[in-house]
């Protein structure tokens, strides 16, 4: 039986960590104040394992930390040269895949994609920009959908279902034509989406924005202006 007081002992980068049964590597690490970079993962949502930024080596095999359960004696590599490079490459891919114009984006300073790039010290992506044609849906009176900035993490899709009890978003197409769609024939205005839906807040980039509230926080006071993403986890207390 799963006993909540039971502990599972594993190591992350050589440091012993105590996890609980049922936890994923990412959750156990977070409880131990170890940050594993991630994008498509969000607390209280089913893990998707789609961005792959949380890739770690678990007992030698590369796995997404957000989906892989911990096991006794597991040896996890997280902050290694190899994994940092792989993650950096994935972040670079997301930047060149979409159209990320940070200089005028309302989410700048609070964007998790941008913040990860900052954390990794990326000054320019190593891959050529694709400059795809993506569309924008401003039909909803309160919410803007800008697919130029969408990284297909699916957080809005899951948040709408799992937290809002709705089904506003979904994915259509496949491969390079995969895109975020709404649960209506034409646009978001035809759905039951509302500005205070958790699905909107779940967007890590500026792809879903509540209208008329942008740029409210001055530069210098935004979430990631001074401290890297993940530092709140690294500075937290180890949970028992």
């Amino acid at each position: 039986m799963n006993n909540n007081n039971q502990k599972i002992s594993l190591t992350i980068d050589g440091v012993e960590v105590q996890g609980k049964p049922g936890q994923t590597i990412l959750e156990a690490a977070e409880a131990a104040a170890v940050y594993i970079p991630r994008l498509c993962w969000m607390k209280n949502l089913t893990a998707a394992g789609s961005c792959r930024v949380c890739s770690v080596r678990a007992n030698g095999r590369v796995q997404s930390a957000c989906t892989q359960p911990i096991g006794p004696g597991m040896v996890v590599e997280n902050d290694t040269e190899e994994l940092r490079e792989l993650r950096r490459n994935l972040i670079d891919m997301l930047f060149v895949e979409g159209n990320h114009f940070c200089m005028f984006c309302e989410k700048s300073g609070e964007c998790e994609l941008q913040a990860l790039a900052y954390r990794f010290g990326i000054t320019a992506p190593k891959y050529p920009f694709m400059f795809p044609q993506r569309d924008l849906d401003a039909s909803h009176p309160e919410i803007l959908v800008d697919r130029n900035r969408c990284i297909l993490c699916g957080r809005c899709v899951r948040a709408s279902q799992e937290l809002d009890g709705k089904h506003v978003f979904g994915f259509v197409g496949r491969g390079t034509t995969k895109r975020l769609a709404v649960n209506a024939p034409d646009n978001l205005a035809q759905t039951d989406a509302e500005a205070d839906d958790q699905a909107v807040a779940a967007c890590p980039t500026g792809s879903l924005l509540v209208k008329r509230v942008g740029y409210a926080v001055p530069v210098g006071q935004r979430k990631f202006d001074h401290s890297p993403i993940g530092s709140e986890i690294e500075n937290s207390d180890v949970q028992d």
Partner: peptide, 21 residues
């Protein structure tokens, strides 16, 4: 592979396009 990738994860969806490019 570009044609047949489901597009779920980043490396396969984006990386194969870059590789062929």
């Amino acid at each position: 592979f570009i044609e047949e990738s489901c597009g779920y994860c980043t490396p396969c969806r984006v990386g194969n396009v870059l590789l062929k490019e």
